[in-house]
Write a protein that binds this DNA or RNA. Structure first.
Lengths: 210, 210
DNA sequence: GAAAAATGAATGATTGTTCATTCAATTTCT
DNA sequence: AGAAATTGAATGAACAATCATTCATTTTTC
């Protein structure tokens, strides 16, 4: 179906999709540079090298542009997450470690992108749409990680370890590291962060992470 | 020094300080309600039940009001942090746990306040002043917690445990929980978060947290 | 009654949105 | 196939709304 639709698309439709993507890229740059509140449509258009009214032409309104930008960020993350799960299928312990490593990779743990994530998170309580989008995906990832923990606990017969507690700790760990990196990039150390995560995994699941 | 300054203050000066405080409170409410970008000075004045030009009278500019609001939030947190350290002096392990518990107390882990924290964090990369303020305090807390970890490691002769790694992980944990609470308040469970933290402490310092 | 505080209407700058117009691509017609 | 007609993308000037800031005036405090 997607193929048929794409075949139908002439140069025009493809160009349109490209334009939207270029504008979203420009939006990300502008937000990371000036903040969500101060990034204007003129800034975005200039950053993209296009004209004043271009955003309203392609997105109708600023609100739409911002929502689509958030959606793009999430889908970008989601694709990497799913790909990571798929690649390392089979071994739960290995999958879990891969996912933790993924969150610290430069593609994700990039200050420019993180600034935009936090900008949206900062409006989550004020803008219901943002919250819904974020909450839905957070739930999804939490379920996957919890299930991996469950499997590991089952395999290792770990006593007194709750899958939910561990998965909660793991996701919080990475999100907290992101904040540290955003606020204090100089003192942040990717390797140290990964060590922290591994030391935690080793402590909780000693048989799986020797 | 603070006392002398306050004694010097007549009713007027006190009222002025009270006004500033009321305006900061109103600002916090407005930011949590509308977001940092959409909260206007008219909103703040209305929330405080005062007149249009009141913010410029007391803070000169909107930028100043926002900076002072961030400073207020931090000093508020700082006071509690220092008080917690002071109270539970003596035992490093106990102090550390108290600090972790503190971060999950309703006074701190309050969605309205957290929304404002994240709003500022979302602009950290764009507004240098915010970054400097946040980074300075983050450093301060990191040092305290790292020192506590060092003591615990020393007491317990823990091998292969790095104080910096553990303190980094602990602060990341709480900050990550704050984000979870902000995004998904329904599925967030204070007790579960505390269990996660304790499970981490138990895993890393088994002799101190049995 | 003088000084300070507070008000709220007015101001000017910023910014999202609209729209008439231009230009290029695609389709239709011969 | 090539000319004419149509469509839709893109522009940027103009518009309208919003909002921080100012200030003349009123109210309160000492």
């Amino acid at each position: 179906m997607a193929l048929i639709a794409e075949e139908r698309q002439g140069r025009r439709a493809l160009a349109k999709e490209r334009r939207r993507r270029q504008l979203i890229d420009a939006t990300i740059k502008c937000i990371s540079k000036k903040g969500l509140g101060s990034a204007t449509l003129a800034d975005v258009a200039k950053e993209a090298g296009m004209s004043q009214g271009i955003v309203n032409l392609h997105f109708d309104s600023k609100g739409n542009l911002l929502r689509e930008t958030l959606r793009f960020l999430i889908e970008d993350y989601d694709a990497l997450f799913m790909q990571t799960v798929k690649k390392s299928s089979g071994n739960a312990a290995e999958t879990l470690r891969s996912l933790m490593e993924m969150d610290l990779k430069p593609v994700i743990c990039d200050r420019r992108k993180l600034a935009v994530w936090f900008a949206f998170w900062g409006e989550v309580k004020a803008v219901r749409t943002y919250q819904k989008i974020c909450a839905a995906y957070d739930d999804k990832y939490d379920k996957v990680i919890k299930e991996l923990c469950r499997q590991i606990i089952d395999e290792g017969n770990y006593d007194g370890v709750d899958a939910g507690d561990v998965s909660g700790a793991l996701t919080s760990l990475t999100e907290g590291f992101w904040l540290s990196f955003l606020i204090n990039p100089k003192s942040f150390d990717r390797a140290a962060a990964m060590r922290s995560i591994e030391s935690y995994l080793r402590a909780v699941f000693p048989k799986h992470y020797p």
